[in-house]
Amino acid sequence: IINNLKLIREKKKISQSELAALLEVSRQTINGIEKNKYNPSLQLALKIAYYLNTPLEDIFQW
């Protein structure tokens, strides 16, 4: 999986903590996703895309 979450999140000036709060997950979860240590569920990936107002395929590429 190619993961552009960190790049997109930083472009939008959103911290890991802010995104985690919006998604109701821990900051460690966001960190793990960004470091490719954790693959989000489809539901979480869709929520990330929604809150970042970015197409899912721009954030994650399988």
Rank of each mutant, 00 (worst) to 15 (best):
I33S: 02
N53S: 11
I1A: 10
L22H: 12
K35C: 12
I14K: 06
K6Q: 12
F60G: 01
I33K: 01
I8A: 06
Y38Q: 11
D58I: 07
E24Q: 13
E18M: 10
P55C: 06
L7M: 13
V25G: 01
N4L: 05
P40F: 06
L23C: 15
L52S: 01
E24V: 08
Y50S: 08
D58V: 12
I33L: 10
I59N: 02
Q28E: 15
E57G: 10
S26G: 07
W62N: 11
W62V: 12
Q61R: 11
I33T: 01
L42P: 08
E24F: 09
A21V: 09
S17W: 12
A49W: 02
I1Y: 14
Q28R: 14
N39R: 15
A21H: 11
P55M: 05
L22D: 08
E57K: 11
A20L: 02
Y38S: 09
Q16T: 07
I14M: 13
K6H: 07
I14S: 02
L52R: 00
Q16E: 05
Q43C: 14
I8G: 02
E24P: 04
Q16S: 06
L42V: 10
A20C: 04
N36V: 04
K12L: 07
Y51K: 06
T29E: 08
I59K: 00
S41E: 06
G32Y: 14
E34K: 02
L7S: 14
I8P: 00
V25E: 05
R9F: 04
W62C: 14
A45Q: 14
N3E: 01
K12N: 09
V25N: 02
L7T: 14
A20P: 00
N36T: 05
L5V: 09
L23V: 15
I8L: 06
A20D: 02
A20Q: 03
L46H: 12
I1L: 12
N53Y: 04
Q43E: 14
I48W: 03
N36Q: 13
T29H: 10
G32E: 15
L23Q: 00
L7Q: 15
R27G: 07
L5H: 01
L42C: 15
E24L: 10
Q61H: 09
K35I: 13
P40D: 05
K11S: 14
V25H: 03
L5D: 01
V25S: 03
I59Q: 01
N3Q: 05
Q28S: 14
Q16H: 05
N53E: 15
R9G: 01
Q16W: 03
K13E: 14
A45T: 05
L52Q: 00
D58P: 01
L23A: 12
E57M: 09
P40C: 08
Q61E: 13
N4H: 10
K37P: 03
L42A: 07
A49Y: 02
K47H: 05
E34R: 00
N3V: 07
E18I: 06
A20V: 02
S41V: 04
A21D: 14
